[in-house]
């Protein structure tokens, strides 16, 4: 039985991995977070700065967990700038998990959205034939290719990097590459995480072909446990009812792919 913590526990950053010039992975020891289900997240406290919802990255060593961050705003940059030996707080895990179907599955991710998808890959059934599509702008932003191949070494699989400028792998948006692939390959399920516009396209494509699809969503989160309401989308709380939602629900959502809430709760367009 998974134990869920609502109070931050301090962990020491044991290792920092440079993934790209703007993305780093921070490794900690946390037996509870090491085994979270794909789609679940933790609230990560950067003392004195902020607390952010983050998916837990797969680390091969037992009892280890990690967070992968791209430096962007004040808080993500503060996390990115931490060093080995620095302290962060963690609480969780929270949220639901992907429902892994049998057969041929596609994982479609962009940027740090790959984190929950690699955990899904780790939980894949031995019989799953897994295709991972990783989207990025250019070659120097491609990461997790080796990690994906390693996690899936015992599965039939392929890892396809897609770059918008064509400097590496397939040229184009990950959604276009998926659309092309789906013309010849019959997928039993598609899972996606990344920028919401990308996920929206993936869900639309899967729904139009009648393929089971799930997306792991991100919203402004404060409590992470279904109290504050900051992350509400339509009638659901993304932290508590999600973060994983299926294509049928998302197809009927007024907000998915269109709007998200600001810190005040006002709806803003994507």
């Amino acid at each position: 039985m998974q134990s869920v913590s609502k109070t931050p526990s301090i962990r020491i950053i044991e290792k920092v991995i440079d993934e790209t010039p703007t993305v780093r992975t921070f490794v900690i020891s946390d037996a509870n977070l090491a085994d979270v289900l794909p789609g679940q997240f933790a609230m990560v406290w950067i003392p004195g700065v902020n607390e952010l919802p983050m998916s837990v990255m797969v680390i091969p060593e037992k009892g280890k967990a990690a967070f992968t961050v791209r430096k962007r705003g004040v808080s993500s940059t503060a996390l990115y700038d931490l060093k080995a030996g620095d302290q962060i707080g963690v609480r969780g895990p929270y949220g639901n998990a992907f429902d892994i179907k049998d057969g041929k599955i596609a994982l479609v991710g962009g940027g740090t959205g790959l984190v929950p998808l690699l955990r899904l890959a780790k939980f894949a059934k031995p019989t799953n034939d897994v295709t991972i599509l990783m989207g990025s702008k250019s070659k120097d932003e491609v990461f997790f290719e080796d990690a994906a191949n390693q996690i899936l070494q015992n599965n039939k699989h392929q890892v396809i990097a897609c770059t918008e400028d064509g400097s590496y792998g397939e040229k184009g948006f990950v959604t276009d590459v998926l659309a092309k692939l789906a013309q010849t390959t019959k997928f039993d399920a598609i899972y996606t995480c990344g920028p919401e516009i990308m996920m929206h396209k993936v869900v639309q494509l899967a729904n139009s072909k009648g393929i089971f699809v799930q997306a792991s969503l991100e919203r402004m989160m404060k409590c992470g446990i279904g109290i504050c309401g900051s992350c509400c989308m339509d009638e659901v709380m993304v932290c508590h009812d999600g973060t994983v939602f299926d294509g049928e629900f998302l197809a009927n959502s007024k907000e998915f792919g269109h709007t998200h809430r600001a810190k005040s709760g006002i709806l803003e367009n994507y």
């Binding site: 609502k6 406290w45 902020n50 607390e51 707080g89």
Partner: peptide, 9 residues
Amino acid sequence: GYANPTIVG
């Protein structure tokens, strides 16, 4: 509102 952490158990 304030920066996180805003709610903890």
